[in-house]
């Protein structure tokens, strides 16, 4: 099997975020591997492990895990971390003209790299913690005309039959779904517990190949991507007034009744 995992470097969700010229100011915040993508990497590793005759030999299994990431130069930090978890190699699409790309452009680029790579499965996180749109996996399925198996709480793969099934877990309940390869999968954070990179993994990651590609390498015209091609335009951004400090009371036996008095006074109930 050839599995691709889409990973993104995002601003640390604990860091304060600001806008610069209508876009998220990415240069001035700490960046990390999108934590929801760790579940996607972990699931890919588990699929390979479950379908490898010998546990140790990742290479001998005939399965490969390729990370695909679109982002600025320093996204390599996040890619190395993902490699240290155990993925085999990475493709990093990096080009100044990609700055400010929206989800449509991002999915265009990722879909091109995926279709060039002849993968069986693509695994994504459900959401990037910065964009929080949760649309890239579905857009990839649309662009590639592949099966869309998103919001997976469990995944099982039968490589000999080239079949994959998932339990899709959303606010509407659980749906069991299946499809033939190739398919786009996204996984929710309940699916597994991502491993910590081992020392051995970190050392090995330094030697793994990260292939950097620019727009010319993947044959995408620059006018289709970047902030100029973004099809939704921010008109203005305003800081919302900070929440004014509220009342804080110690419960000295009357806490419940006082709470109700407050709610009644504010006509909240």
């Amino acid at each position: 099997m050839k599995i691709a995992v889409c990973v993104k470097q995002v601003p640390d969700s604990w860091a304060e975020k600001k806008m610069a010229d209508g876009l998220l100011d990415r240069a001035n915040v700490d960046a990390v591997l999108n934590d929801l993508d760790e579940y996607a990497i972990e699931e890919a590793l588990r699929i390979v492990e479950a379908n490898s005759p010998t546990k140790e030999a990742g290479e001998a299994s005939g399965h490969t895990i390729t990370l695909i990431s679109m982002g600025p130069e320093r996204a390599t930090e996040a890619i190395r971390k993902a490699l240290s978890m155990g993925a085999d190699e990475a493709i990093h699409i990096c080009d100044d003209q990609l700055a400010g790309s929206d989800a449509l452009a991002t999915s265009l680029v990722l879909a091109k790299v995926i279709s060039d790579g002849a993968f069986d499965l693509v695994i994504c996180g459900t959401e990037s913690t910065d964009a929080r749109m949760s649309v890239i996996p579905a857009m990839l399925a649309e662009r590639l005309s592949w099966a869309q198996l998103t919001f997976a709480g469990t995944v099982s793969v039968d490589p000999s039959m080239k079949k994959v099934s998932i339990a899709r877990s959303t606010e509407f309940g659980i749906e069991n779904m299946e499809a033939n390869f190739p398919a786009v999968i996204s996984v929710i954070e309940k699916i597994n517990e991502p491993r910590y990179p081992s020392f051995k993994g970190i050392m090995a990651a330094k030697k793994k190949t990260i292939t950097t590609k620019n727009l010319g390498d993947i044959n995408i015209a620059p006018e289709l991507v970047g902030s100029k091609a973004a099809w939704s335009k921010v008109k203005d951004a305003t800081l919302r007034p900070a929440r004014s400090a509220g009342v804080k009371v110690e419960d000295a036996g009357e806490g419940g009744r006082k709470l109700v008095e407050f709610l009644v006074e504010k006509r909240a109930i």
Partner: peptide
């Protein structure tokens, strides 16, 4: 974030409320 916060044990505060 609280407009109103009670520092207390929920097992006392909630039933009373």
């Amino acid at each position: 974030l609280a407009d109103y916060g009670v520092v207390g044990d929920l097992f006392n505060v909630l039933p009373q409320a």
